[in-house]
Design a binder for these strands. Structure first.
Length: 295
DNA sequence: AATGAGCGT
């Protein structure tokens, strides 16, 4: 068709894909590999005014292994077996459904909510409740997150000091030595049992001693007065915290001044790292960085 | 300044 004048001001966008490349006197695209592993891609095109435009892009191809937990990436190389032995790579849609990463977030009041709803058919639906939900501080019941409580450093969460109140106290609040909390026969998800291990598939199918530090932060310059629960409260607001480890001396129990915080999601860890590095906590300024491999 | 822990399956 319009082969005479290369600078055609308009053409059907539907033709874009093919026309672009073949367009007569445009130089062919160039790709240059740089030393640092990036590539520079130079392409030419005509803009709306029919002028020749040179575009230079520098790109870095990110491999799957760099964006995904290495263990997960490794798993993808396993050969299939059984009835799926002959299937190609990737999930087969007839036997496998791929869902999004659903994170289980237990709340203190779910049991109460469920009861209310069954007792009173006219009660607000769950959806309505979520719509106007309010945050409630576990320390002072105020309308802020526990981590933001002005009394955070001076008061214990409700129910932890008083001997009587058994209902309050979240399972994850069962701090070491803190004894109290987690009474009654309420279910505690495995990831939240105790403080030390077990979160989010960590250690699943692997030997003890191996730890997944893919989303673990090392926090240093931590006050000796700090407690694991406080650290958890501070970091929880960036995402699901799967493990909090506050280093202490085995004999004396003295805090050693550093801690490890693991997240279920690396993105959350990244956010927490940037936001919490330099955060003032109990007269000290926290230093937060990604943990290196354990030793 | 500082890179964890109780493991025996």
């Amino acid at each position: 068709m319009a082969t005479t004048a290369p600078p055609k001001p308009k053409h059907d966008w539907a033709d874009d894909d093919d026309v672009e490349e073949q367009s007569s006197d445009l130089p062919p695209p160039q790709t240059i590999s740089n030393k640092d592993g990036t590539k520079t891609i130079i392409t030419f095109r005509y803009n709306d005014q029919g002028q020749k435009v040179k575009t230079t892009r520098r790109v870095r191809y990110v491999t799957h292994k760099e964006t995904v937990n290495p263990r997960v990436a490794d798993r993808k190389t396993w050969s299939k077996f059984g009835l799926s032995a002959k299937d190609g790579p990737g999930p087969a849609p007839d036997t496998t459904s791929v869902g999004e990463n659903i994170i289980f977030r237990p709340s203190i009041s779910w049991r109460k909510d469920a009861k209310d709803e069954s007792a009173d058919p006219n009660a607000q639906s769950m959806k309505d409740k979520l719509k106007d939900k309010k945050v409630k501080c576990r320390i002072c019941n105020g309308e802020h997150f526990t981590a933001r409580c002005p009394y955070k450093d001076t008061m214990a969460p409700i129910g932890e000091t008083g001997a009587s109140d058994g209902a309050a106290g979240m399972p994850e609040e069962a701090a070491p030595g803190g004894a109290g909390a987690g009474k009654k026969g309420s279910y505690v998800p495995p990831a939240l049992r105790g403080d030390r291990a077990g979160a989010a598939g960590e250690r699943m199918g692997s030997k003890y001693g191996e730890r997944d530090d893919f989303a673990t932060l090392r926090v240093t310059n931590v006050s000796e007065m700090a407690e694991e629960g406080e650290l958890r409260d501070m970091f929880e607001r960036f995402g699901r915290v799967t493990r909090v480890f506050l280093a202490k001396d085995r004999e004396t129990g003295m805090a050693k001044g550093f801690a490890f915080i693991s997240f279920a999601d690396r993105d959350d860890a990244v956010k927490a790292c940037s936001k919490m590095d330099g955060f003032g906590f109990k007269h000290l300024i926290l230093r937060v960085e990604f943990a290196k491999k354990a030793q």
